[in-house]
Write a protein that binds this DNA or RNA. Structure first.
Length: 567
RNA sequence: CGGGGUGUAGCGCAGCUUGGCAGCGCGCUUCGUUCGGGACGAAGAGGCCGGGAGUUCAAAUCUCCCCACCCCGACCA
């Protein structure tokens, strides 16, 4: 390719509305342009990167025996009504009506469609199956952000496995997990596999692949010592033990005028947060529920959703709380509450001599024994891990990392094969439902994650495996016949050798071309100019290090190969 | 959905307070000089000032309504 003929609209200044490095650089280096919030056009350089990312994913999927297919992006409403997700995914689905008045949806994901295709599996002899595609997903995200990191229209590699039994699913899941680790390794993404909540997808085990980045939206608790890693939606930590003194035989009321916070109570009434019971009131799938945590612990709402098997949770409004408990936040408690379900965090188990609200404004209770005084309906892990707490496995202090979720794999179970009544005959001649797994990688988000982890102040630094071009031949002076001739000949030679090469033949000053080569992130630059040719040499510069070596024209190919091997 | 911010040439911005010819830098076109790290000079092209309504002799500027985009939160594979 010739730079002079490609559409690579690099910008001299940073775009005003881009904050995240990947957003800023992909726009500035001429890879993407925004159409509207969450919808981007991919320009020629981006398409070249995308193809390489997809090829790597495809190779690894094929390697584990998965078969590529392609399902439609528009689906009839009826299919989603059958699975029950017409309602549960209502707020993220784009819906549209055709000329007959039939309602269709744009694909949010494709479990339903691939499950329908599995209708034609009849025998256990046809299992296992692993199917995948690269297909556009539409999600009506409430807040798209940061360029390609969170969009409303994107390409996903999604795969779906069908196995005869749980043991088979375990194998399929482990194969995908290994394939994903290889994919991210090849893409140059430092992915950390973490335990995750399955969220709205349902199912049991799920593993997310997270790329540490300040632009990330997910928090991961990570142990640098033993490698434990989990999304804070799922992460646990060890706790320093708390010894409770024996308390009174019954809770005692005491006045606490003006006290509204844990901190107020701790400082003014000698009640350290670790000895307080924090009482939160939540609306869980439409029902009020009391949520109890230790005073110094924070609730993770996803954990509450998982514990309650709920679809939606929200904090109750003050008037709802007053109607239910007779007091406002600041003086709430669960002692003697019998008409509302109570869920308590594990950290409160067995605690005694605690302090909590009395459900009368400006009054608290001391000497509360959790087992004796509170009708806990369910115990669950509800608290969000905090940085510095000891790792559950090894005790080393945990760190919290901001991360980008670049892949997610689920053991789905029987949800869809039962909903669509998909069965095969097993070896005994019985009808059984196959068990499913589903697995996703966001392609454009992966591209953004690569940029997030591979850039410097001059621009993008693509790993060679995904760079739009491996090499740029930069002719320092296009009007110098010798430079042009040598540049063209090296370009031909590299291309013939199978190297993805672009020649920068623009009639621009050398500095402009150097800057653009760096901004766009091409791993190796071969500079051809009068200065070097005077002594029969060209220069080879590695983008990642800036290191430049002079080599004889005849040796350029060998040196370029070396440089690429190390990029 | 709540809070904050921004919409003026392809990009980055000033002008708005106090109404009076729509500007600057970059980029773009042509010519000349220059040319291995975002050159210089000269001459040009390029505008629904986000949209609508209103106030006024007069609106980019004041008022009202709407829309879009960005950020924080909520939410979300």
């Amino acid at each position: 390719m010739r730079w002079s003929q490609m559409h690579i609209p690099t910008l001299r200044e940073d775009p005003a509305d881009a904050g995240a490095p990947s957003h800023r650089l992909l726009v500035r280096a001429g890879y993407i342009r925004q159409l509207m919030a969450g919808h981007y056009s991919l320009l020629p350089l981006a398409i070249r990167v995308r193809v390489k990312v997809m090829d790597i994913i495809r190779q690894e999927m094929d390697r584990i025996g998965a078969q590529e297919m392609l399902a439609p992006t528009m689906h009839p409403a009826e299919v989603w009504q059958r699975s029950g997700r017409w309602d549960t995914m209502a707020e993220v689905m784009f819906r549209l009506t055709d000329h007959k008045g039939a309602v269709n949806v744009l694909a949010v994901t494709h479990e339903e469609i691939f499950t329908l295709l599995a209708q034609e599996l009849n025998s256990h002899k046809q299992l296992p199956q692993a199917w995948y595609q690269f297909q556009t997903k539409f999600r009506d995200e409430p807040r798209p952000r940061a360029g390609l990191l969170r969009v409303r229209e994107f390409t996903m590699k999604d795969s779906y496995t069908f196995d005869l039994d749980a043991a088979g699913l375990d194998v399929a899941f482990d194969r995908h997990r290994a394939a994903y680790l290889r994919i991210f390794e090849r893409l140059g993404i430092p992915a950390i596999p973490v335990e995750a909540s399955s969220g709205a997808m349902g199912g049991r085990d799920s593993t997310e692949f997270m790329c540490p980045s300040s632009a990330g939206e997910d928090l991961v608790a990570h142990c640098a010592n033993c490698g434990y890693a989990a999304n804070v939606e799922k992460a646990t930590s060890a706790l320093f033990p708390v010894i409770d003194a024996d308390g009174p035989v019954a809770p005692e009321r005491f006045d606490t005028p003006g006290v509204r916070t844990i901190q107020d109570l701790a400082t003014a009434y000698d009640a350290p947060a670790t000895r307080q019971i924090k009482t939160l009131v939540y609306v869980v799938d439409g029902r009020l529920m009391l949520v109890l945590l230790r005073g110094d612990h924070a609730l993770n709402e996803q954990k509450l959703m998982d514990a309650a098997g709920a679809v939606a949770v929200r904090p109750a409004q003050p008037q709802e709380i007053r109607e239910a408990l007779g007091a406002l936040p600041g003086s709430l408690g669960a002692v003697a509450v019998s008409d509302l379900p109570v869920v308590a965090d594990e950290a409160l188990r067995g605690r005694q001599n605690m302090v909590t609200g009395a459900n009368t404004d400006d009054v608290h209770l001391r000497g509360v024994d959790v087992d004796r005084d509170i009708a806990v309906g369910a115990w669950a892990d509800l608290r969000e891990v905090a940085a510095g707490e000891p790792c559950v496995r090894c005790g080393h202090p945990l760190e919290l990392l901001a991360t980008i979720e670049i892949g997610h794999i689920f053991k789905l179970g029987y949800k869809f094969t039962k909903a669509f009544n998909i069965t095969v005959l097993n070896a005994e001649g019985e009808r059984v439902h196959p068990i499913m797994g589903c697995y996703g990688i966001g392609v454009e988000r992966a591209m953004a994650a690569i940029v997030e982890s591979h850039h410097d102040e001059r621009g993008i630094v693509w790993p060679a495996a995904v760079a739009p071009f491996a090499v740029v031949v930069t002719i320092a002076q296009v009007d110098d016949p010798e430079s042009a001739k040598v540049g063209e000949s090296l370009y031909e030679q590299f291309a013939a050798a199978g190297i993805d090469v672009i020649i920068d033949d623009r009639d621009e000053r050398a500095g402009v071309k150097f800057r653009d080569a760096e901004l766009t992130g091409i791993p190796v630059r071969v500079t051809v100019g009068k200065r070097g040719l005077a002594e029969g040499s060209v220069e080879i510069t590695r983008r990642a290090t800036g290191e430049t070596v002079k080599v004889a024209v005849a040796d350029a190919l060998a040196h370029v190969r070396d440089a690429l091997a190390g990029a």
